Amino acid sequence: MTGRDGGADLAPLSPFDPVVILIRPQLAENIGTTARAMANGGLFHLRIVAPRDGWPQERAWYASSGADRILDAATVHETVDDAVADLHRVFATCPRPRHIIKPLMTARGAAAELRTTAQQGLRSGILFGPERTGLDNEDMARADTLIRYPLNPQFMSLNLAQAVLVMAYEWYLTEDTTPEQHFMTNETHVATKGELENFNAHLLRELDACGFLRNEQKKPGMIRNLRHLFTRGQVTEQELRTLHGVVRELSHNRRSKQP
């Protein structure tokens, strides 16, 4: 079964990327939105253990928003043991404290560990429990590491797709090179010092001509302040052209009124 148009052009990035394993999911829509969350983070491999309403279910494809190919490639397993049999590392999300002695990691720490595991050519998986109850102790016994998200301790309630999205996002960040901040200029460019100086000279000529700089004692400080105003940030070439037009129009109006 596939979506109506085949969905986005998704494909496995690597056989060693983490496998998302849904344990006894209850609603088809939640499986579909999980696939959507996976696609956002660059995860492809989905395994479903004992889905309550069977599989496949058309509602999952409708809820996936185009992540059809993840659902098309998903495999169904009767038991958790079967779903993890070919994996080298198994992580399990654990929203509530349990009386279990295992390594416990944050989502970010687990994502870094998952990336290292993949780079070593080893296969890994992440267990996500049923919507209402989460993983039970028997499920977590199959994992070697637990993951607990550092969220508001007064309200730690995520739906299934949200829980998957947190891990998918952290996984994606482990190799993301997007700068934390950049300056959008679209069709223009950041003005050069020469372009800024050209505008400053234009502005100062007109300010001198209209008498704004008539106080000789204050004039040097006023000029410095104007220079600081236009050089302390990233002014674009388009913005400078606009300012040139403003100054030109103001000076034109002034001169046209002179006798």
Rank of each mutant, 00 (worst) to 15 (best):
Asn30Pro: 01
Ser256Tyr: 00
Asn159His: 06
Glu138Cys: 03
Ala73Asn: 14
Cys94Lys: 05
Pro103Cys: 08
Arg108Lys: 15
Met222Asp: 10
Asp9Gly: 02
Gly42Arg: 06
Ala67Tyr: 04
Lys218Asp: 14
Ser256Glu: 12
Met140Gln: 12
Trp61Pro: 00
Asn215Ser: 13
Ala111Lys: 10
Gly109Asn: 10
Ala168Glu: 08
Gly194Tyr: 11
Gln154Met: 12
His99Ile: 04
Ile48Leu: 11
His228Arg: 11
Ala28Glu: 07
Asn186Glu: 13
Arg115Gly: 05
Glu249Asp: 05
Asp53Phe: 04
Val49Cys: 05
Leu165Gly: 03
Asn40Asp: 03
Asp82Ser: 15
Pro15Cys: 00
Gly221Ala: 13
Leu160Phe: 03
Ala28Met: 11
Ala39Arg: 10
Gln238Asp: 13
Gly54Gln: 06
Lys219Thr: 00
Gly121Thr: 08
Val76Glu: 12
His189Ile: 05
Met156Pro: 02
Arg148Thr: 15
Asp144Asn: 12
Thr192Glu: 10
His252Glu: 14
Leu173Ile: 02
Arg69Trp: 02
Ala168Lys: 12
Arg47Pro: 07
Glu78Gln: 12
Thr177Tyr: 04
Arg148Val: 09
Asn225Phe: 06
Ala92Asn: 00
Pro18Phe: 04
Glu195Lys: 08
Leu104Phe: 07
Leu71Ile: 06
His189Pro: 04
Asn198Gln: 13
Arg224Thr: 14
Thr93Pro: 05
Leu22Tyr: 06
Ile101Met: 09
Phe128Ala: 01
Leu240Thr: 07
Glu197Thr: 07
Ala110Ile: 11
Arg214Ile: 14
Ala67Glu: 02
Ala60Trp: 07
Gln120Tyr: 01
Phe155Ser: 13
Asp5His: 14
Glu170Phe: 05
Glu206Trp: 12
Thr133Ile: 07
Met167Tyr: 00
Leu71Lys: 05
Ala107Phe: 07
Gly194Ile: 13
Met222Phe: 10
Ser14Trp: 09
Ser64Thr: 09
Ser256Gly: 00
Met156Glu: 14
Val90Ile: 13
Cys210Leu: 13
Gly245Trp: 06
Ala209Asp: 15
Val20His: 00
Ile147Lys: 01
Arg4Phe: 15
Met222Asn: 11
Thr116Asp: 14
Arg89Val: 15
Gln154Ser: 11
Ile101Gly: 08
